[in-house]
Design a protein around this nucleic acid. Sequence first.
RNA 1: GUGGGUGUAGCUCAAAUGGUCAGAGUGCCGGGUUGUGGCCCCGGAGGCUGAGGGUUCAAGUCCCUUCACUCACCCCA
Length: 419
Amino acid sequence: MEIITAVRGFKDILPPETEKWRHVEETARKVFGAFGFHEIRIPLLEKTELFCRGIGETTDIVEKEMYTFLDRGEESLTLRPEATASVIRAYLEHAVHAAETVTRLFTIGPMFRRERPQKGRYRQFHQIDAEILGPDDPRTDAELILMLIHFLDRLGLAKLNLEINSLGCLECRPAFREAVISFLGSQAEELCGDCRRRLGTNPLRVFDCKVEKCGEIISRAPRLNSFICGDCRTHFEGVQEGLRLFGVPYRLNDQMVRGLDYYTRTTFEVTAEHLGAQNAVVGGGRYDHLVRDLGGPDIPGIGFAIGFERLISMIPESGEDAPQGPLLFIAALGEKAAERAFILGNRLRMNGVHVEMDYAGRSLKSQMKKADRLRCAYALILGEREIQDNKALLRNMRESAQEEVCLDDLENTIMTLAR
RNA sequence: GUGGGUGUAGCUCAAAUGGUCAGAGUGCCGGGUUGUGGCCCCGGAGGCUGAGGGUUCAAGUCCCUUCACUCACCCCA
């Protein structure tokens, strides 16, 4: 009979990989906590409508990448493709905005998008998501980015590029957009097929086309810089000033367009080399009208999403790759000894000591070999002879030295070692 | 959705032009003094060579189909 395999694009994360995951999560909790963020846990499933309104009907995500189904043939539900919409839904549903003016939330969990898998891209992938709702002061933007960069630093990540841009606001962006459309429309024949299509769907996206000829054309296209309004310009300068204050290196990229419709003003991206084609590790930006678009008051917000898998793949292999082994292996010889080992070992475990044992009744040699393979610090040899003398042999595996210990205070002896 | 690449033991990989080709290393289990690990030596288990069909006296090796994985496009974390 054939075994059942995981669904395409859905990955198992096995030990010791899970240790890395935990390390990243713990670092995030620590760093984000210091910046005043609290964790929120939100459902994986939402009403489809939430994402249509939140992310934008014409985005690729909504148009073709969502896992959507009818629940009992009645209500359309969708596995979340991103977290921001859900966070805001919860924020509004629980009227958090009524209780406080600034809300900082983060969440870590799986997202689902039905794309063709490739390096760094999976159908179930994980994001670390942080959102600040309430303030629109540029220092908020800078602070969020600062936290992000600090977090990446703490993980020992190098060779990362931070790029920032401002997309303008509802006042100034439309004019820019129109200018781009008419400019590109005038030479549509020169553009690649994809870009001709983009012209109708998301014209700004032509800016990051990889085809050479498109790049040439776009380099002559109008720039947001000449359309951006005074407020947006001031805001963006404020963000940069904040980053400079902390010496955060960044690169201005006025061709950076993000894929979600809701972004306004500040957008940013962290990319890394050697990640393959999917080189974006973090994407984020300001969304000053998303809360309103989802039916709430006009509260501005900003946030980012870190691609967990992409992040993990860059974490340097830690020097001490050999993780700490168990403190003790109990090698028992004979039925009576096995019984004592069973009791002692589990008592120690309940005291928080990592103990390993083997009930298969193997030879001492094979049990010692096991202790060694597991990298146990100590081995306790418990045989008929020892039990008779009310003793056991405690062997220090690293120093290859052993001593007799009395069975009566064995537990205390081991507990001492544990400290 | 569209292209390219790859599919042989748990893992990493060998098997010239189709003909003892089903192997190695590693891992796992056991043994090498009577109750003591690491190094070394020996042995064992484990593969219907992704699946199905075809060509041939003969197919991991050629052809077709299919599935899976993978990389890239699209798009994004």
